[in-house]
Write a protein that binds this DNA or RNA. Sequence first.
RNA 1: GCGCCCGUAGCUCAGUGGAUAGAGCAACCGCCUUCUAAGCGGUAGGUCAAAUGUUCGAAUCAUUUCGGGCGCGCCA
Length: 577
Amino acid sequence: MNNYIQELLSFFYNFSDELSSNNIISKINKNQISIDYLSDNKKGDVASNFYLIIKRKIIDKNYDFISHLNEKIIKIDFIKNFELSKNGFININLSENFISRSLINIYKKNFLNDINFGNNKKINIEFVSANPTGPIHVAHLRGAIFGDVLSSLYQKTGHEVVREYYVNDAGSQITKLSNSLYKRYLEFLNKKIEILDDEYPGEYLIDIARNIYKSDKDLWLHKDKKERENYFKKFAVDHLLDKIKSDLKLINVNFDIFTRETEIENSNVIKKLFAILENKDLIYQGVLPKPKTDDLEWEPRNQLLFRSSRLIDDQDRAFKKSNGEWTYFANDAAYHFNKYQRKFDKLINIWGSDHIGYIARMKSILKAIQDKDNFFEVLTCQIVSLIQDKKKIKMSKREGKFITLTDVFNKVGKDPIRYYMISKKNETAIDFDLDEVVKKNKDNKVFYCQYAYARASSVISKAKNLKLFDEKSFDIKDFNKNLTKEELDIIKLMISYPYLIYQSSFNNEPHRLINYLELLCSSFHSVWNKGKDNESLRFIDENNINHTKYKLFWIECFRIILKDIFSIIDINTPESM
RNA sequence: GCGCCCGUAGCUCAGUGGAUAGAGCAACCGCCUUCUAAGCGGUAGGUCAAAUGUUCGAAUCAUUUCGGGCGCGCCA
């Protein structure tokens, strides 16, 4: 029973049901009931607004809320007492017995047992999916880490997660890539070349071309164009995908599966999807309206359309080009149908904010092929602006000038990247200041938190050296008499951790981890420094072994919680710094 | 023109309809004979873009306006 906050919420939900079915109150919106366990404003260990919600809805004038609540709440074993504040909050204090049991659960590392709300549901999380036309650059960084941490959170809460990357290895961009690579290859044969505006100028293609030249010499000059194009396509994509994988490995982002667009194209999945849509009268031959964009040469054309406006989208979308080829969207729709066929309970996509306009049509596809409302969810990441010398770094894809993941990694390192990218809401555009983040390692909170862990570890190792670290003495009951208020506050914060994980996962908000982590670490540093002013408040006091064992117990728990958070964010846990 | 996101301290950002709106950085003043000063304590800094509304209660919800970002094609 680690998730006591959830239990408390359920208690109030049931309470309100009981009150309304007995006609004591009129109907309320239960979603308004909340439990406050983090804010500074709360007066008890936790606080609820329950009374404020029902107060105005009370019909029975003789109803005595406090004694009724008292009668019910006394049966909850983890509650010590409660009081109704003048302004209507219910302030609740937890029983010492419960707190010490919870702490023992943390020590035994079974504190997350109760937040298994996933019940082994299969979740597919698709993220990054950057086109294999160049190295991973900074625009993909945020989605990569958001997707990775979100996946870990879902795993923590009992879901079976598949991390998936969709490889767009078909279409005209790949043809252009193939042509650009061929030109670089021609360079090795001393031919003069010119890279066109819409081709890929990046120097990374030169290295790939060199490989082809080394093994094949002038072989491809004499081959037929189609054969050569296909070979160069595959060669380029394979190499760039390897590069993407190894780049992502630098920041510990790994995938379970890479699905290629060409696989989808070559399978019959698109035909199957097409049949389903046609059967539902969602496919027709028609003409799209003129787009609202300015400066657009527009010729109306008759083509195969998907009637997405009947579902979620505001207009219909092209399924086939006028030359009869499937559109990118059609392939992508087939890919999502393919994911559906793989029997996931839920699909989550993480897209950059530049794809927001694409969400409605894809949701329309998913709605057409299945009934569940929340089966398919798209989470978007707003852009990250890189700041250097107090200025935004401008990137130009056309000139092949962009900051790659490797550039940022070499400058900053894995932990600050992962920490910073996950510390802000995904829907907020953020500035990532490369100078601030590396400046003397001081301005970055990741070091602040790792330092807290290292300090805690140094206490434990010193205690072990002094033979004061005795596990057998950790089954303690009356720790509240042996610890300071500040220490008890940290302990109460720690035992709310399971609910925090539950909330972060349920709401797709990994950044809450960071808020919690920083609060926890700041409290720890503060308590640490109390020992500087007052020797009796140090964690290890050889003159007071009794106090010491209580302190060592919660510090070990603190390390366990920190280690758990660090493992989700996937940053190092340094024993010393 | 339309859609989505955002606007909170000088800067970067938290903030679950609820109690006195917070943190870090920058500024200023203190704290190392000590389990790690990569730390701690304090001071100062706010019309939560604006207006109206809903509510017992709004930074949070609704509407409008202003400002910023990202998108809107048979591209991918």
